[in-house]
Amino acid sequence: LLKISGEIIANVMARWEADQAQQSKVAELSVLQSLSMVMTEANSVEELLVGSLTILGETFYTHNSGIALVDEEAGILRAIHKDFEGRIMTEKFPPGDGIVGRVVETGKSVRVEDVSKDPDFVEVFEDIKSEMCVPIISAEKVIGCINIESRTLGAYSQRDQDLVEIFSRQLATGIEKIRLFEQVQELAIRDSLTELYNRRHFFELAEAEFAKATRYGTPLSVIMMDVDDFKAVNDSYGHGLGDHMLMAVGEVFRKGLRISDIAGRYGGDEFVVMLTGSDIQAAKLLSERLDKMTRNLQVAGTRGTVSITFSQGIAILDETCHNLDILLDHADQALLVAKRTRTGQLLVWGEDVYEDS
């Protein structure tokens, strides 16, 4: 009888373990299927992260779920959270800060059954009792981590951790795919030398801003800029130094312009900047600032060192500008007269240069 009872118990336990394994497999497939759908539909890393947080919250009934990614350029971690009420929040913090920072530094998962006993725990949300944090690893490099928190002690099991680690591997693939796609898109719209917008994309953006300014009657101005004596520099110092000059100009523009300004390489050594919401005085001030920034540059090559100066032409949207081409042509005409007069000069269409100039 005891032998039979033992066999029955063993069979029951075996079935229970098989059922648990089957349930885990079903849960794993369900989570990965949901993530796959989010990865397919997401157009940005942020969309992917928000969708992933929704899946994590629904799967583990978290009071807070978060994903932090390493921002190597800024030297910080950028995190996005979703609480149990569905509110989205963002934060940034130094590497190594909190349990999240520890996981990013070590690349190892952590389950904390009672956060009050972990000296690294940083309270962001009230009444959190337990936490689980799993690294996101791509190409053997930690790029971030998944963090979920509960108001219940010991809320997460080893099985939960295993599932989040599988989720993390899939998420890493999704993040890298989107980043690669964004890089390819960025390369398609940027000039490879200056990293400013290429001519085609500048026109796409400029046409939209021209239409907006025309419709709402807001100020719009354009600066055309040409590097003085660029051909002579190439002939005397070599094309390598000429390339470095253009790269330096691109860096000045990226640092000196507002986010709303549109800068592009128009062709060769000629550049164009569209200033949204800016009248002629604002355009002059920006032009002078860029000129000052470039004059302070010394570009060195194997045959010597040169300074950079610009000739510039400015035009503002007025009643004669029936389309974008006319506005750009006005700025270009002012630039041509400036170059003929003397180097490093700024002329304004309608003030210094007219139709018959």
Results as ranks from 00 to 15, higher is better:
Leu297Asp: 07
Ala300His: 11
Ile308His: 00
Val337Glu: 10
Leu335Asn: 08
Met274Asn: 02
Cys321Tyr: 01
Gln281Trp: 06
Leu336Pro: 02
Val337Trp: 08
His330Trp: 11
Arg295Cys: 12
Arg342Pro: 07
Val272Asn: 05
Asp269Ser: 12
Lys292Thr: 11
Thr294Ile: 14
Leu328Phe: 11
Arg340Asn: 13
Leu328Asn: 02
Arg295Met: 12
Ala315Asn: 02
Ile280Gly: 07
His322Val: 12
Leu324Asp: 03
Asp352Trp: 09
Trp349Lys: 02
Val273Glu: 06
Leu297Val: 08
Thr341Asp: 15
Asp318Val: 07
Val337Phe: 10
Leu275Asp: 00
Trp349Phe: 15
Gly304Asp: 04
Gln345Tyr: 15
Tyr266Asp: 13
Thr294Gln: 09
Ala300Val: 10
Val306Gly: 10
Gly268Met: 03
Ile314Arg: 03
Gly268Pro: 12
Ile316Asn: 09
Val306Thr: 11
Thr276Met: 05
Ala315Cys: 06
Ile314Asp: 04
Leu346Asp: 06
Asp291Glu: 08
Asp329Cys: 12
Asp352Glu: 11
Gln298Phe: 10
Met293Ser: 11
Ala334Ile: 01
Ser278Asp: 05
Leu324Asn: 04
Leu328Glu: 03
Ala300Gly: 09
Thr320Val: 14
Thr343Val: 01
Ala338Phe: 04
Val273Ile: 10
Glu288Arg: 09
Val353Lys: 08
Leu285Trp: 11
Glu355Met: 14
Val353His: 09
Leu328Trp: 01
Ile308Leu: 04
Ala282Pro: 00
